[in-house]
Write a protein that binds this DNA or RNA. Structure first.
Lengths: 222, 222
DNA sequence: TCACATCATGACCGGCCGGTCATATCCCGT
DNA sequence: ACGGGATATGACCGGCCGGTCATGATGTGA
C-alpha cells in the first residue's frame, strides 16, 4: 500500500536526523578530526555500517550536512532581523544592536556547534583541495549576501557611509565571529557566571562599528 | 679547545634553523595535519631520525617553535609602530593607518605561514586538551597586551574613546586578521593582480574602526 | 508459511605516519 | 692511527580509523 512506502520514508528521515544529531554532539565534543564514525554511530544507537547506508559520503558528508544547516540558520536570522516588520520606523542603531544581540544569544546557546563551525570552516577555507575551499567560500558568500541587501538599503537611505557593501558585510560578520570566539574562550577559564552578557558585548560592538573609536570625528575641516 | 665547543654549538643552531625553515615551508604547503615529518626532514636534507635529535617533541615542537616566532614578530611590529619616534606629534589617525598597513604588508608577503597560523591557532584554541588551549591563549594575550599599552595611552590623551582596552585590542586585531584572511582567500580565485592593495584595505579598516559606519555620529544633543 | 527484498551489523582490511632504536658514520683528542 | 663519544639514519613498529562487505536479521506481500 502506498502508505507503507511513505511510512518507510518517514522512518528513514527520522534515522538520518538522529544520526545528524549524534554527529553534531560528537563532533562538537571531540572535534571533527578526533571524532570517529564509530562513536557517532553508537551515540545514535546504530552500528557503524548503518551510518554508511544513510550517508554515502561517510564522515565528511555528515560534516557538510551540519555546516549547511548552520549557515542556513545564519541566513534566516539575518533576513528576519532586517525584515520590514523588524526595521519599520526604528533607527538603524537600534535595529543593528538588536541584530547583533540576537546573533550572540543564538550562537552562545549552541556554543559547541558554533566552535565546530569556526574550527572546521577555517580548515576548509585554507584547504589545499580547491573543491573544499570553494564549498566554504560558497557558504560564506551566502551569508554575506544576505547581509548585503539590508546594508545597501541603509546606504541608499543615507543612514550609513557609502562603502563597498560586501566589504562592510564581511567586516561586521567578522567582528561578530571574533567576539563570539572570544566569549567562547574566556567562558572556558572563567566560570560562565562572570562573562559579559550578550547584551553588553553587543553594545560594545555597536559603538565600535557604528561610531568608531575616535573621540571627535571632526565634522570636516577647521 | 674551547673554540671547538662553540663551533659545534653554532653548527647545531644552524641545523635547527634549517629544519625550522623546512618545517615552515612544508606546513605552509600541506597544512600541519597533512605534512609528514619525513618530508620536513628531507626538505632540510636530513633523515627523519635526525629531526628528533633536534626537536625532542617531534612534529608538535616544530609547530610551536614556528608559532612562537610568528607571535614574536607581531609583538615587535606593534611595539615599533607605536614607539615614541613613530608617533611623535603625528595624529592618531595617521599612526593607526600606518600600523595597519605595515601589518598587512608584513603578513601578505608571508601569506602561507600566516594562513598556517590562522588554521592551527584556531585548532589549538578550541582544542579539548586544556594544555594546548592555554598555550594559545597565552600567545594571543602577549599580542593583545602589546597593543593595550598604546591604546591606554591614546585613551588617556583623549584621542580615542575610553573603552576597555583589551576588548578594543581584540577587536582591532580581529579585524586585521579577518581582512587578511579575506585577502588570502580572494587572492586564490582572482589573480593576485586585481586584489585590493594593502593600502586600500588598510584605509577601509581605518575608516570603519576609527570613524564608524554611521554617517553623522551627531556630536551629541543640539 | 515461504521467498524475496531490504536493511543492520561489526569484523576486517589497508593505508598512513609519528616516533624509536640498532647500526653506521663521523670527528675528535691523544 | 686508534678508541670512543657524538651524531645521522631509515627500517620498522604500533596504533588508529575510515570505509567495505559477507552475513544474518527483519519484515513484507502473496
Amino acid at each position: 500500500m502506498e502508505n507503507t512506502l511513505s511510512r518507510r520514508e518517514r522512518e528513514r528521515q527520522r534515522r538520518r536526523q538522529s544520526m545528524l544529531e549524534a554527529a553534531r554532539a560528537v563532533f562538537a565534543e571531540k572535534g571533527y578530526g578526533n571524532a570517529t564514525v564509530e562513536e557517532v554511530a553508537h551515540r545514535a544507537e546504530f552500528g557503524k555500517g548503518t551510518v554508511y547506508n544513510y550517508f554515502e559520503g561517510g564522515k565528511e558528508e555528515l560534516l557538510y550536512a551540519i555546516l549547511d544547516e548552520l549557515h542556513d540558520d545564519l541566513c534566516t536570522l539575518i533576513d528576519s532581523a532586517f525584515s520590514p516588520e523588524a526595521t519599520e520606523g526604528r533607527p538603524f542603531r537600534d535595529v543593528f544592536l538588536n541584530f547583533i544581540e540576537t546573533l550572540f544569544i543564538n550562537f552562545l546557546e549552541r556554543r559547541d556547534v558554533f566552535a565546530l563551525m569556526m574550527k572546521e570552516a577555517q580548515q576548509l577555507i585554507f584547504s589545499d583541495d580547491d573543491e573544499k575551499a570553494a564549498y566554504f567560500v560558497r557558504q560564506s558568500n551566502r551569508v554575506v549576501n544576505a547581509l548585503v541587501g539590508p546594508l545597501q538599503k541603509a546606504m541608499d537611505e543615507g543612514k550609513i557611509k557609502p562603502l563597498p557593501p560586501e566589504a562592510v558585510a564581511h567586516t561586521i560578520l567578522g567582528n561578530v565571529k571574533g567576539m563570539l570566539m572570544h566569549l567562547c574562550v574566556i567562558s572556558r577559564s572563567a566560570g560562565p557566571a562572570d562573562l559579559p552578557s550578550a547584551h553588553k558585548s553587543a553594545e560594545f560592538l555597536n559603538v565600535v562599528l557604528l561610531d568608531g573609536l575616535l573621540v571627535h570625528p571632526e565634522p570636516k575641516s577647521r
